[in-house]
C-alpha cells in the first residue's frame, strides 16, 4: 500500500504502482486542475510539487511517491506565494486558452520559493520546461516579476 499526502490530506493507494501520479490525481481523485499535455515530461502541463520540489506528474509513478507530500494547483491559493502568483497572473492577464497554466503557476511558485527575486535568466531556467502554445510568455514573465515584488 502506498501512503502519501495530497494538499495535506493523507491518502492511500493500492492500485497499479506504475500508474503515473498525474492519472491518480485526475482520474482517481478527480483533481483535474493538473493537466495532461504530453505524457513524457516535455511540456510541464502536469507540474505539481513533490516534497516542495516541482515535478512532472505524468512521468512520476505512484511507487515513487510512497511517503511523499504532494501539492497541486487546487491548493495553491492556500499558500502565500501561491496566492501572490495567482493574483499576479490575473493582474497581468497572462492566460489565454489556460490549459498549461496550472503547470506554469506551479513552476512559478517553486521558483519564487527558491529565488524570491528571480532574474530573467532565473525565469528562463525555471520555466523553460513549461510550454505554452498560446505563447503567453511575455505576460508570464511579467507576472513572475510582479509576484516577486508582492511577496517582498
Amino acid at each position: 500500500m502506498i501512503k502519501l499526502t495530497i494538499n495535506g490530506q493523507p491518502q492511500t493507494f493500492e492500485g497499479d504502482a506504475e500508474m503515473p501520479l498525474l492519472w491518480y490525481l485526475r482520474d482517481e481523485k478527480d483533481m483535474t486542475g493538473t493537466k495532461f499535455g504530453c505524457g513524457m515530461a516535455l511540456c510541464g502541463a502536469c507540474t505539481v510539487h513533490i516534497d516542495g520540489r516541482p515535478a512532472r506528474s505524468c512521468m512520476t509513478p505512484m511507487r515513487s511517491v510512497d511517503g511523499a507530500s504532494i501539492s497541486t494547483i487546487e491548493a495553491a491559493e492556500e499558500d502565500r506565494i501561491g496566492a501572490a502568483v495567482q493574483a499576479a497572473w490575473i493582474e497581468e492577464q497572462a492566460p489565454q486558452c489556460g490549459y498549461c497554466q496550472s503547470g506554469q503557476v506551479m513552476s512559478a511558485i517553486a521558483l519564487l520559493k527558491e529565488k524570491p527575486s528571480p532574474t530573467d535568466e532565473d525565469i528562463d531556467a525555471a520555466m523553460s520546461g513549461n510550454i505554452c502554445r498560446c505563447a503567453a510568455y511575455p505576460r508570464i514573465r511579467q507576472a513572475i516579476h510582479r509576484a516577486a515584488r508582492e511577496i517582498k
Binding site: G33, A76, Q86, Q93, S102
Partner: peptide, 15 residues
C-alpha cells in the same frame, strides 16, 4: 475566463 484558469477550475473536455 482567467480567474478559473489560474486555479485549475476551468473545465476542458479532458476534465
Amino acid at each position: 475566463d482567467i480567474p478559473d484558469k489560474v486555479n485549475g477550475k476551468a473545465i476542458f473536455t479532458q476534465d
